[in-house]
Every structure is written in C-alpha cells, then in structure tokens.
Amino acid sequence: MTQIRCVKVLVYGMVQGVGFRYYTQQEAHRLGLSGHATNLADGSVEVVAQGESKAVDKLIEWLKSGPRTASVDYIEVYELGSSAANSGSFRAY
C-alpha cells in the first residue's frame, strides 16, 4: 500500500525573483505531487506538497538547494494532515 504524506516546507534564502516557484512546480510535477508554491511577505517561499511518501522526501531533498538560480539558506518542514493539499495538480502562484 502506498503511503501518502503531506508537508509544508518553508524555504529561506534568495528564493524570490529567481524562478524558484516555477522550478519547484516542475520538480513536483516530475515527482507526481500535488500542492502549491507561493511567495511569502518575509521573502521566503511556502511549498505545500502531497503525494507518495518517497516522492515527497525527494522534493524535500531538492528544496534544500533548489534550482541553480536560487540560494537556499535553510528549510523548515512541517507535517500536515493527509488531505491538506487536495488539489489534483501542483500550482505556483
């Protein structure tokens, strides 16, 4: 049986204005995840991702460095309820 996991990841560093949300969306699609990536007022990016546990783990690992255009200082990971990101796709806004 497939284990479904949903997380909220806050990504800090130079992550706005560098295509971070776009590249996160591409990576999440590649991994088959649903959720979203959005800029926050403090300069960080919030990523909510749901899907197969191993795919979520892979996205978290990717978020630790992000795309080449970004400079990630650190991330914070929070476990959410399994239906927190119930949209069928991954959106960047």
Rank of each mutant, 00 (worst) to 15 (best):
R5A: 12
C6H: 07
C6D: 07
C6Q: 03
V7G: 01
V7A: 05
V7T: 05
K8G: 05
K8S: 01
K8H: 12
V9Q: 02
V9A: 04
L10M: 14
V11K: 03
V11R: 00
Y12K: 11
G13A: 03
M14E: 10
V18E: 05
V18G: 00
E27I: 01
E27K: 15
E27M: 15
A28F: 02
R30E: 09
L31R: 06
L31P: 04
L31C: 10
G32Y: 01
S34N: 12
S34V: 07
S34Q: 11
G35C: 14
H36I: 15
A37G: 15
N39D: 13
N39R: 11
L40D: 14
D42N: 14
E46Y: 10
V47M: 12
V48S: 00
V48R: 03
V48W: 04
G51P: 02
E52I: 10
S53M: 12
S53L: 13
V56C: 04
D57Y: 07
K58W: 07
L59T: 04
I60V: 15
I60F: 07
I60A: 00
E61P: 01
G66N: 01
R68Q: 04
T69Y: 00
D73P: 06
D73S: 12
D73M: 05
Y78I: 09
E79T: 11
L80D: 08
L80P: 11
G81V: 14
S83N: 10
A84G: 05
N86H: 01
G88Q: 03
S89N: 08
S89T: 15
F90N: 05
R91K: 15
R91D: 02
A92N: 07
A92D: 15
Y93V: 05
